[in-house]
Design a protein around this nucleic acid. Sequence first.
DNA 1: GCCAACGTTGGC
DNA 2: GCCAACGTTGGC
Length: 153
Amino acid sequence: MRYWLMKSEPDEFSIDDLARRKREPWSGVRNYQARNFMRDRMAPGDPVLFYHSSCAAPGIYGLARVASAAYPDPTQFDRGSDYYDAASRRDEPRWLLVDVAYERTLRAPITLEALKREPKLAGMLILERGNRLSITPVERRHYEHILSLEPAA
DNA sequence: GCCAACGTTGGC
DNA sequence: GCCAACGTTGGC
């Protein structure tokens, strides 16, 4: 089992949206490294940290799980979609997605600011300078430490 | 295959 | 809105 962090802009799709939908095809990934993670490394059941980016308080807002194997992202063939890719062919799809299932919303978000303050999280990809990858693997010890930062119920 | 130009991401 | 960082594109 592997652990992951997946970014989403809450204006586009937030943890609350996922809570309503329960399960969502993670469409729109247009980066080869992120695609390869989904294709080669992700497996159903893998835990996911749901991260809000490009917002007032970026950080981890909830927990989810990978809910399918990778399969072709239909938006790449949809001319009306922002994610349309004219160069991708149906017989050889360039972009893939996985379904993501809602697990729960954190009692309080663990902000990027808070993550940066944790010496034990040094080396996490999300904290590395210039990292823009929308899907990153997370070490188990980092995942567990992050959960330990959640305020008690 | 190099690399400059360009586009995008995402924190601030 | 700015801009640093980084990925992609395309001319050569």
